Each structure stands twice: as structure tokens, then as C-alpha cells.
Simulated scan of single mutants.
Amino acid sequence: MGTETELLRCYLEARDTAREDEVLGALVFDNASPVIRRIVGRRLMTSPAQDREDVAGDVILDLVSRLKRLKREGDTPIERFTAYVAVAAHNGCDQYLRHRYPQRHRLKNRLRYLLSKTPNLALWEDWEHGWICGRRAWRDRPPVPLDPELVSRLGARVRAPAQILVELFGLVSGPVEFDELTSTLAVFWGVRDAITSLELVEQAAAAPELAADSLFAQKQSLEKLWSEIEDLPPPQRAALLLNLRDGTGGSALWMLPGAGIATVRRVAELVGMAAEEFAVLWIRLPWSDIEIGQHLGLARQQVINLRQAARQRLGRRLRGESAAAARKVPAS
């Protein structure tokens, strides 16, 4: 039906209501909607599907209102329609994230300030990728993905934030999307927003991008381990799971929903908590021995003893299974 520029001109010049609606539909739903949904889908990929749909719908409604106002009142013209639509989609995502994740939003504001004040670093806008950041000399380059493992290479957290930024950009080969930088440094500094809905926790925990590829290769071993954990006495189980840590010191429980081993509801049941209560506490894991003791009504040393007993029992059971399996293998 024509380019976006021709469609916009046809819409603004249309005098017949039927023709006006036809061109507006083509402009919004054939041209703008795919751009909006692609950007919203990419930026909010871990958010609930209904939230993504709501954000995209709100952006489309705002766009229709803007176009009608432009025709009616001769508002400021839109020179590059696709770029305008993309920026509107990014703004819609920003507004959603600002309300959903206030701690993350505060971190983004801090990073904006640091990027503007740190020599040789900059933050600039791209209509396709939104905000991009990095060294000033990288302005003409496309963004590169940030490796999640980068967090482990950044060293000590207790340093000047500007120094950490400079070090991070020394570990990448080009500029990065500002959202990715924020997510990476949120993990590095432990910036988290409270989650009050079990459904949100389930979706975040089970998101494929949160689990390393190697996790799925180890799924069979995890299933076997989880089966043994389920058979532990309840106090041992709680002492073990509530303090379970991964290689970075964070909670390792996210691996279970992420690999399809157990739901958050099931984990909550096994540590003796209501599902919604556990969902709220999820982001505070792993717990200290004192916190676990308060939950179980036990002293700190008793919690340590329970966890040690759980590990010893699991070790014996898993070693026994491995030995039995080895005996079944025929000699070559």
C-alpha cells in the first residue's frame, strides 16, 4: 500500500472517513505493530506474556491517539515514522520497568549519571536497540551481547562505581545495550526488587535464559539428587535447601524450576512454607543459619548439624547408587 512516509501523507491528506480509517489501519497494524511487538518482546522477554501484550497495546493506543491529534490539530509532524514508533515502544517498556522494578530503575538513573560524568564513556540512543552505552569511540558500532559470566571477572564490589564501569568496558569488544548493562551490574551489586507474586517468581525462575546450557545436560543427575532430597527428614531438608548456594554465593534453588526439576510451589512445600510466603522470600535466599534457625525454632549450631547430616546422607545414597550402577556394567 506504499511506504510508511506515503501512508502517513495519505492519512493526513485523506478527506473521506472510510479512506482515513483504511490508511490508519495499514499504518498502525501493518507497519507500526510489528516493530512495537518485536521491541517489547525482546526487552520484556522474562515478563509475563499478558504484561507484554498490555505494554504493546498501550503503545499502539498512544500512537493512534498521536496520529489522530496530528491530523486534527496539525501537531508536530513525524519525520521518521519507524524511528518514532521504535522510540515509543522503548518508552513504553521503560515505563513498565520503572513501575515494576523501582530498585532497578534507581540503578539505571545512577548508571546514566556515571556514564555522563566518566571520561571517555557515553550513553546514546538508537531507534532499534534503545539506549546503548560504552566508550565514546564506539558510537558508530552495533551493540554486542554481554556474557553473563562477565560478573565473575569484575573483581571486588567495594570500589568506585566509575572504576567498575571502565573495567567492564575493557572486557567487551564494543558497546552494549543499556538494559543489559543494568541487568549485569544489578547481579554484580545484588540489586533486587521484591517479588510479591508467586506466578512472577515461577516465570522468572523457569525462564530459559536464566539457566546455563550445561544445566540441562545435567538434568538427569539433578533429578536423581532431587529425589534423594525429597526423602530427607523435613528439618534436614529445610536446613539444606534454604542455604543451598551456587558458585557465586547466590541461591542455587533457581536451578530446580529452571531445569524443570521442581516448581517453586514444591520447593516451598518441602521447606515447610506456604507458597505465597516463600515467593516473597525467594529473592532473599540463601538464608543464613540464624534465619533458618528462627524458621525452624532451632539454634544456629543445630541448623549446621542438620545440614551436615543431610549432606552426609545424600553422599552415601548417591555413592551407593553409583557403585550399584557400576556393578551392572558388563566387563569389556
Rank of each mutant, 00 (worst) to 15 (best):
S221K: 14
A204S: 12
A205N: 00
E202N: 03
V201T: 04
L210S: 02
F178S: 08
V158E: 03
L171K: 14
P143T: 13
T118P: 02
A186S: 13
Y101E: 09
V151K: 07
H129L: 10
A205M: 06
G134M: 04
A186V: 06
L146I: 15
L198N: 00
A194V: 11
Y113C: 06
R112A: 09
A207K: 00
I132A: 09
E177T: 14
L121M: 09
L165F: 03
V158I: 13
F178E: 03
K117R: 15
P175C: 09
W127G: 07
T118H: 04
L171S: 11
W138A: 03
I132F: 07
R139S: 07
P148I: 04
V176G: 00
G130W: 01
A205H: 00
T182H: 02
W189Y: 15
K108N: 09
P175W: 08
R98Q: 15
S214E: 09
C133T: 15
A160W: 12
D147T: 04
N120A: 15
S221A: 15
E177I: 07
A206F: 00
Q220A: 12
Q203L: 11
E223S: 11
P145E: 10
R104K: 14
R106Y: 09
I132L: 12
W124P: 00
K108A: 13
T184V: 07
L171C: 09
A212F: 04
L146C: 05
H99S: 14
V187L: 09
V187R: 06
R192K: 15
R136F: 05
L198V: 14
L198I: 11
V201E: 00
L107W: 06
W138R: 07
Y96Q: 02
S197E: 11
A156C: 06
T182V: 12
A217R: 14
L185N: 03
V144G: 00
S116A: 15
R139P: 01
A137R: 14
L146R: 05
F216I: 11
P161I: 15
K219F: 05
V166M: 08
L97R: 07
Q220F: 06
T118R: 02
K117W: 03
R112I: 10
Y113F: 12
P142S: 08
K108T: 14
L200P: 01
F178T: 08
H105D: 15
S152C: 08
P148A: 11
V187Y: 02
V158D: 13
K108I: 13
L222H: 06
L121D: 05
A205E: 01
L150F: 01
V191H: 00
V166K: 10
P161K: 12
Q220G: 08
N109P: 00
V166P: 03
A194N: 05
V151M: 01
D193A: 04
F178I: 04
W131I: 02
D140P: 08
L115N: 00
F188V: 11
F216V: 09
A212R: 03
A194Y: 06
A204E: 00
I195F: 06
Y113H: 15
V191W: 01
A217C: 04
P142G: 08
E209N: 07
V172D: 01
A194P: 01
I195R: 06
D179H: 10
V187T: 10
